[in-house]
């Protein structure tokens, strides 16, 4: 792992605080009696304020892992420790894959959902949602319903819904996978812009290597069947990042290529396993 170690030396050590925000130890998940191992002993510390990306082929259990971290699912064994810095703020908010905005609520009400569920005074809800919708350029669409918005706008609203709730940790489950390339690029830029202003701990799941390298501080590559952590890489690029400039750099291409090589082995192995099972 020569490249990984050089990269970590170039990384940003100041981000690695003493107590990690999230601490996973031997997290495993088995399904039913078939003995299918979705996750096999994932051990990982995620420091506070880090943009942590998990990249892996489909079926590697990365969504299951995220759901376990968010408390929407339970692990079969292992522990997840969350170190909170502020008891008053919510622990986590999730940005889901695909359409998760409530169709029966306006943009404003969707964005205000988390705050209202924890009974924040309405004046404060109004202020916060206003600020966030302004920041992402959707304030004038506040009275629209989701079916009156484009896919990119809808996903921006779900980003606002999560950020406005002001959680300690943001979980993102392939939030941009349904968008076209142009929209994806714009949303990467916007996400980086607002994340860099708040510096929340992020766990971001994707199958796109470009997305992982563009956004992340650290990348975990996962294997499929069983889902294991194959490698962890530091991303050396400084912030604030400009998405287009970043993608022109040779070092960007090198890192993407390096991750791809590791993933390709995984995808091929998973395919061979699947074919072997069929025979």
């Amino acid at each position: 792992m020569a490249i990984a170690s050089t990269l970590s030396r170039q990384g940003r050590p100041e981000l690695v605080s003493s107590t990690p925000q999230l601490s996973l130890s031997g997290v495993s998940k088995y399904f039913g009696t078939s003995g299918f191992v979705a996750l096999d002993g994932i051990t990982m510390d995620i420091p506070q304020g880090q943009f942590f990306v998990i990249v892996g082929p489909s079926g590697c259990g990365k969504t299951t892992l995220l759901r376990i971290l968010a408390g929407l699912d339970t692990q079969s064994s292992g522990t997840v420790a969350v170190n909170r810095t502020d008891e008053k703020r919510p622990v986590n908010s999730m940005i889901f894959q695909g359409d998760s905005l409530f169709p029966w609520m306006t943009v404003f009400d969707n964005a205000a959902y988390g705050l209202r569920m924890r009974r924040v005074p309405e004046a404060q809800v109004s202020d916060t949602v206003h600020t966030w919708l302004e920041r992402i350029g959707l304030w004038r669409f506040r009275d629209r319903y989701p079916n009156q918005l484009s896919g990119g706008m809808r996903q921006r609203v779900s980003i606002v819904r999560a950020f406005a709730n002001d959680p300690e940790i943001l979980f993102m489950d392939e939030p941009f996978s349904a968008l076209d390339e142009q929209n994806k690029l714009l949303l990467h830029e916007e996400l980086l812009r607002i994340w860099e202003a708040t510096k929340k701990t992020v766990v971001f799941i994707t199958h796109s290597v470009d997305e992982a390298v563009t956004l992340g501080d650290r990348i975990m590559i996962m294997t499929a069947n069983p889902g294991r952590a194959k490698a962890v890489l530091e991303v050396p690029f400084p912030r604030p990042r400009n998405v287009l400039e970043l993608r022109q750099k040779p070092s960007y291409g090198d890192l993407v290529f390096h991750i791809w090589e590791q993933l390709r082995e995984e995808v091929q192995r998973a395919r061979q396993n699947a074919e072997g099972e069929k025979v």
Binding site: A70, L72, M94, S100
Partner: peptide
């Protein structure tokens, strides 16, 4: 997914 959102928030 809407129930997941409710649960998450």
């Amino acid at each position: 997914i809407y129930l997941d959102v409710g649960h998450n928030y």
